Amino acid sequence: MLNTLTAALPNFAHTNSGQFFLMAGPCVIEGEEMALRIAEQVRAMCDRLQIPFIFKGSYRKANRSRLDSFTGIGDETALKILQKVGREIGVPTVTDIHESGEAAMAAEYVDMLQIPAFLCRQTELLVAAANTGKVVNIKKGQFLSGESMGFAVDKVRQSGNPHVILTDRGNSFGYSDLVVDYRNIPAMQSFGVPVVMDVTHSLQEPNQSSGVTGGKPQLIQTIASAAIAVGADGLFIETHPTPATAKSDGANMLQLDRLQTLLERLTRIREAVR
């Protein structure tokens, strides 16, 4: 399933070791220096462990609880930073889009377009993303089962684009928490697409009374380890040098200097499973 990504993504080196791939970076692009620093350090870790790496960063945050929440540094500014990361660090890049009109614009700067979980049923958005020819990573809605994501895959494929990834990020029951059902991984793999576990977003505690999303970062290792043991093709991990000062989702991000140890553990789990 990963061979299609190798062909569709520049600088995406698929190993023959059965290793998982990593989508990682800050929640939102906060500035050029930080984005390049994170991308460079994560690539170095992944190179040592032979983990294919895709840099993740939102150019704009559209789904915020409060009107005064940070949303970004400007669309074009952030997209140009993502483009620079891809060129200078030599890794594929991914960002999320929120409306169909954003697809063609974002596709000029990044290698993969991501559909947010709340928008995974938006037909016009999925078709617009598919029509760019880019790889489309669709996050499973918190309100859906893994089996139901086959319709989202079909919308992209029937639009003429075979390059699809599905990402799980837990299920919500409306009580300011999320629950991960690992049955969703094999269920979504049955559609013949790579399946990713979004580790950090699965640990969010949304809809807090403060209007700021909480999280349980102490469980990052638990969620990631279980996903690799079940057979996830990839992991999605938001990371930041100082999560406490991050401008978005700091409560559930992994501190950058802890990523290396986690990845080493996960590669050992994958080897043991194989």
Rank of each mutant, 00 (worst) to 15 (best):
L125I: 08
D154K: 15
A24K: 11
M197Q: 15
L82I: 02
M149W: 11
I89F: 03
G31M: 11
Y109R: 05
T123H: 14
K84N: 06
G214R: 12
M188R: 01
I54W: 01
P194W: 11
E205M: 15
S225W: 00
V136M: 03
P241I: 14
K84S: 04
S159A: 15
A226M: 12
T167H: 03
P92E: 06
V195Y: 09
A107T: 06
G74T: 10
L119C: 07
R66Y: 02
M188Y: 11
T71Y: 05
Q204K: 02
D177H: 09
K61E: 01
E40P: 01
R183N: 08
L219A: 07
A229K: 13
V273C: 03
G86Y: 04
F151E: 15
L266Y: 01
Q221P: 12
I81A: 02
K134Y: 11
V156M: 13
I81G: 05
R169P: 09
M45S: 05
F236R: 06
L254I: 09
N252Y: 04
V156I: 15
A187L: 13
T123I: 06
A7V: 04
Q218H: 13
H163D: 15
K140C: 00
V94N: 06
S172M: 12
A229W: 00
V196G: 06
L113E: 08
E147F: 15
